[in-house]
Each structure stands twice: as structure tokens, then as C-alpha cells.
């Protein structure tokens, strides 16, 4: 038996050491238990994409899973509607950078973790930035950024150089549902291979319906958003975060609904339609982020087999998971 090493600075790590120092009954065959696994884990560099609902959870879990070098990138600032789940932020932080505030909080709670924030857009970072990481873990809220990163990690992988392979772990949530997936460039299906699984981006209403035959409150709101606003303010983009803009939109939508005898226009619905709001709660993010970091831990230490591609979770009825591993698409524009 190995003698436990007490960390001189920082938190005790006794909760993760048993998994790393001994061979378990389900452990992958070539895994050798020992404290060197803990040291190796400490040396890994991780990039976290997004410091929102998933990002906050991912950072918390990483900080207590033996990861010591974490960079996090997010271009967003903190909004009041984030506070019901993004638990590293408080009312006083509204308007500040998510990445910066999240890192400050993590540093305060777990002192020996090096967390570096990047208050920036992912797409503005160069190849060299991404190349320095051993693993990328993403908790993004949009498909475009995911596709961009997916395509990047695949382009960075040189089949003759094992070190150039950066595994990517991706999480996504919506309401009570979510999914986590593990992507090894060119070894598993990539994000693009299974793009058809991505949720519909936004409900599109036919223009002729919203213009001529509105029936739903949503039709009235979209009419004001897409047709009335540009007519009234040709030089100003509608800003859903500006209360004056939202009030104008809401009032006009109400007028239009009244004109057509349509009921049900509320401010909340108006915001939901124009911002394409997706319901979000802390617990779903907790489930998916935990799954993602658990996979990152297994992938980087080999202490247990990792998820083969994707776990889908649904909790709006009795909870269940569904795991699947599709083949790489031969005609995938990115990795095929």
C-alpha cells in the first residue's frame, strides 16, 4: 500500500486517490495504479469553453478532481437571469465578465488551482492557444461555436503525432434534459458527424403567416420584431437586453394582437420569442457537467473505461439515460 501524500498547500485529495493508486475490478488492463497517476493528473492543462451554467459546474468539479491548470474562455457578461443556476456569480457581479468572476471564486474556494480567465470570443484565439491543452471541455450554449471548435481540434490532429490529439468533451442542456459526449478526433464520430442530433435552433414562422394571417401571440411578436422594428428604427438594431427596446416591442405586439383578437401576449413570451430563450436549471447542468468532468478524469488517467461517444439524459419524466456510439460518417465534411 502507498502511503498517502498530504498536500502541503491546498486541499486534501483523499477522495480521488483510491481510484488512482489501485487497480479496480473494472479498470482498463494497461492501467497501473500508483501516485504517479495523481502527479500526472496535476500536470495536465485543460481548456474550459464557456463559464455559464455548465461552465460554473465544470470548474467546480475540475477544481476538486485533481486538475490544477485550467483556462476558461467566455465572451459573455453576467446577467440577472443567470443567477438561478450560475452559482459562482452574485447580484453584485451583474455586468462583469463571467470568465473573470468565475475564476476569482474558484481561486478563493480551492487555493492551489491555477485558473486563468479569457474574456474573449473563442473564434479569436489562434491555433497555438488551443495546442497547449491536453483536453478541451465545453459547456457552450450554441451550435456554431461547437462546430468551430470541433473543426479546429480535428484540424490540429496530425495522425503521425500522438501528442497533437486533443480529446474534446462536450455538454449541452435544455430544461430537464441534456447530453454529454466524448470526441476523439478521427477515432470517434465528431460533432459534425451527428449534427442532425442537435436541437432545432429556433422556430421559424413563415413570413406570410406573421404578416397576413397571424394566429398565435408568437406571430404578433415576430411581426413586430422582424417587420415593424426595422421600419421604425432603420438604423438601430433591436437589443433584447435593453428594457426600453423590449417595452416598445411588447407594447406594439399587444396592439397587433388586439387588432387580430389574439390573446396571450406577455412580456415573458415576447422575450422568449425574440431571444430564443431555452429553459435552464442548476440541477440539469449539475448532472451533465458531472458526467463531462467524470469522463475527463477517466480519459486523462485511464483509471476506468470512458464513455463511448454519447450519453443522453432525460429527467422531465422518470429519469433515464441512453448511451450510443455512432460510426464516423464517411462523408463528414470535417473528419470524413
Amino acid at each position: 500500500m502507498f502511503k498517502r501524500q498530504k498536500m502541503i498547500n491546498g486541499r486534501d485529495e483523499s477522495s480521488i486517490t483510491p481510484a488512482l493508486i489501485s487497480q479496480g475490478p473494472f479498470t482498463i488492463e494497461d492501467f497501473e495504479g500508483g501516485l504517479q497517476n495523481l502527479e500526472q493528473l496535476h500536470s495536465k492543462k485543460i481548456l474550459v469553453l464557456g463559464a455559464g451554467g455548465l461552465g460554473c459546474e465544470i470548474l467546480k468539479n475540475m477544481a476538486l478532481s485533481g486538475f490544477k491548470h485550467i483556462d476558461v474562455i467566455d465572451m459573455d457578461t453576467i446577467d440577472i437571469s443567470n443567477l438561478n443556476r450560475q452559482f459562482l456569480f452574485r447580484t453584485k457581479d451583474i455586468g462583469k465578465s463571467k470568465a473573470i468572476v468565475a475564476c476569482e471564486f474558484i481561486r478563493k474556494r480551492v487555493k492551489d488551482v491555477n485558473v486563468t480567465p479569457h474574456f474573449a470570443k473563442i473564434q479569436t484565439m489562434g491555433d497555438d492557444f488551443f495546442k497547449q491543452f491536453d483536453l478541451i471541455i465545453s459547456g457552450l450554449d450554441n451550435i456554431e461555436a461547437r462546430r468551430w471548435v470541433n473543426s479546429l481540434v480535428i484540424s490540429l490532429y496530425d495522425v503521425n503525432d500522438d501528442d497533437s490529439l486533443i480529446p474534446m468533451i462536450d455538454g449541452g442542456t435544455e430544461g430537464f434534459r441534456g447530453q454529454s459526449r466524448v470526441i476523439f478526433p478521427r477515432l470517434t464520430a465528431c460533432y459534425e458527424c451527428t449534427l442532425s442530433l442537435a436541437p432545432a435552433v429556433k422556430t421559424q414562422y413563415p413570413v406570410c403567416t406573421i404578416a397576413n394571417t397571424p394566429r398565435l401571440p408568437e406571430h404578433c411578436i415576430e411581426y413586430v420584431n422582424l417587420i415593424e422594428w426595422p421600419k421604425q428604427f432603420p438604423d438601430k438594431k433591436f437589443d433584447a437586453d435593453n428594457p426600453d427596446d423590449v417595452t416598445w416591442l411588447y407594447d406594439r405586439s399587444l396592439d397587433r394582437a388586439k387588432q387580430f383578437n389574439i390573446s396571450g401576449v406577455t412580456r415573458s413570451l415576447a422575450l422568449g420569442v425574440v431571444k430564443n430563450i431555452i429553459p435552464a436549471i442548476a440541477s440539469t447542468n449539475a448532472i451533465i457537467a458531472a458526467s463531462c468532468v467524470n469522463e475527463a478524469f477517466k480519459v486523462l488517467t485511464s483509471c476506468n473505461p470512458n464513455l463511448e461517444y454519447c450519453m443522453q439524459y432525460s429527467g422531465d419524466n422518470e429519469p433515464f439515460t441512453f448511451n450510443f456510439a455512432p460510426e464516423q460518417q464517411a462523408d463528414c465534411p470535417i473528419c470524413g
Partner: peptide, 9 residues
């Protein structure tokens, strides 16, 4: 031991 990822899940 409780591991953070299982506890959080």
C-alpha cells in the same frame, strides 16, 4: 469516499 463528480451527478 465521495468523489465530486458522482456526488454532483
Amino acid at each position: 469516499c465521495e468523489m465530486i463528480n458522482t456526488a454532483s451527478f
